[in-house]
Amino acid sequence: MHEEVAAYALGVLDEEEIEAFERHLETCASCQQELKELAEVPGQLDELKHQPSASEDDPPMSMSR
């Protein structure tokens, strides 16, 4: 179950898997910690999904530490 934290952070689990993982997350301190660490990786990968835009790009706000 612990390894699902990455798939959960990326949003690539099925609906039932999301529900099951979130129940696990309620009580698993190590998954909570890992989720905080991995939460912004998808946003970094999104750099590859879009062409750069001319508009301003605000600095990211990190609250994870």
Binding site: E4, A7, L10, E37, A39, V41
Partner: peptide, 24 residues
């Protein structure tokens, strides 16, 4: 297997990006 590889792959990617100072 996909979940497991994704976990280790994403962790490795995070380490690489953290070393390079790319913010999320």
């Amino acid at each position: 297997t996909v979940k497991s590889r994704l976990y280790y792959g994403i962790r490795a990617l995070r380490e690489l990006l953290r070393d390079k100072g790319v913010a999320g």
